[in-house]
Design a protein around this nucleic acid. Structure first.
Lengths: 242, 242
DNA sequence: GCTTGCTTTATTGTACACAATATGTGCAAT
DNA sequence: ATTGCACATATTGTGTACAATAAAGCAAGC
């Protein structure tokens, strides 16, 4: 029998539905709920120790945000992101971040530029630690900061949303040299930082775009097992296409 | 007394919540439910002749899509789009459409390019009719088609979503020469079409971007009544900023 | 053996009831 | 007049019950 009240706090400023949404969204992103997994309202409800009502609201929000597919009388399943969709998302993120970099070059304040330089230097320091997970953290911060530096909440939130949904495909490849990965990444980051500090919009755009395009090739490898390889090659080109 | 069942069909392939979502979303976009308007669950429920449950689900989805602001125990109000937010959205749309134009230049098939030319020529024909509303239709189709031509569902849907939410600010200004508006617009469209047909990505991007930037200046005028004018001037620059 | 159609079962959709919280009103005290 | 508090009211949040539909299992026919 499912135990009751497994961690749902009674928070004043939130609602059970929202809390369940957060939890489920994280479970999906982390991969705990794999693509294609069916979401049964009743079992989720008992699992969280609540009734079906807040669960249903959470599911509907997950559906609105494309984290699950919601079919009218057949419930919800975690969205399967096929190769096509993945490539679209990677490309969109690549370009939108590039756009943010371009705008950042014009719009970041002196203070922000200073913080950007700090962030980059922090990343350089972390390479010594050889901690890939720690590096991923600061890397995310770096990208987030540039998207924020464009001073456009719409672009920022769409970029954030894309990164969030793409994060399952950004896990470190098992067989890869951590130091090399980090070194290459920071090199490219350096180009981006310099361009932004110089206020060189177009250069910032190109640098960010090239950086993302390269990283995205890695992300696509995760799909290679489930896809015919020739197709992937073909698509890989598209990501770099101008 | 509110009459029951005002138009909610019992459709197999949909749910009451979704239908109500659609209706409310349209009412918001059309301006029937103005920004700041409070959405009372009970009155909406009786208005549509249903219980509060599907209404709540509709509201939650509206909230997820940023059409209403949903505060935990205080219900929902139609999102107020302030000048800052509006400018962000306009800029984002401007750039994303530009991006789609750039990609379209490379990716549209010969068939699509033909259809694009047709669409443009249709628009030219419609100028003669002097029907601004009809022109708005074909104009929307034109932009939609270019966004689709990029062959990237993610970019397409974000662009579509932005245009949807921006449509309230795109209503024709009362005191304006219809023919002049249409002529100018089609001139700029011609530049975009030619660039795409030539496969000139960068030119397509620039043309689309310039076109949108100009139109956006008009959209911002709608806000001018409720905002101190000097601020608007300052912001107007930002939209054109590179 | 496989398919077709019906019956049973499981799951989602909707309504309703009650609980929890926010909002509004009036009165008293300063 | 204004502030603070208590009470009344309205509205949202959650739980539960029932209805509607889809999935699964089973029997009869080809």
């Amino acid at each position: 029998m499912a135990r009751k009240n497994s961690g749902m706090r009674i928070d004043q400023d939130t609602t059970l539905g929202s809390q369940i949404y957060e939890r489920l969204a994280n479970q999906i992103i982390v991969g705990d709920l794999p693509p294609g997994h069916r979401l049964d309202e009743q079992s989720i409800a008992t699992q969280f120790g609540v009734s079906r009502t807040p669960v249903r609201e959470a599911l509907r929000e997950l559906g609105a945000r494309h984290l699950i597919d919601l079919t009218p009388r057949r419930g919800g399943v975690v969205t399967r992101i096929g190769a096509d969709k993945l490539i679209d998302m990677l490309e969109a993120e690549c370009e939108i971040e590039g756009l943010c970099a371009r705008l950042s070059a014009h719009r970041m304040s002196a203070l922000e530029k200073g913080r950007l330089r700090d962030l980059h230097e922090q990343a350089l320091a972390i390479i010594e630690e050889r901690s890939l997970s720690r590096y991923f953290e600061i890397n995310k911060e770096f990208h987030d900061f540039i998207c924020a530096g464009a001073h456009n909440t719409t672009l920022d939130s769409t970029a954030r949303d894309l990164r969030f949904r793409l994060s399952p495909f950004r896990r470190p490849e098992p067989r890869s040299n951590a130091s090399a990965v980090m070194a290459r990444s920071t090199d490219e980051h350096a180009a981006i930082v310099n361009a932004i500090l110089d206020g060189a919009a177009e250069r910032a755009y190109e640098a960010m775009r090239a950086h993302n395009a390269r990283v995205n090739l890695g992300a696509m490898k995760i799909l290679q097992n489930s896809e015919p390889p020739e197709q992937m090659e073909l698509r890989a080109k598209r990501v770099n296409l101008r």
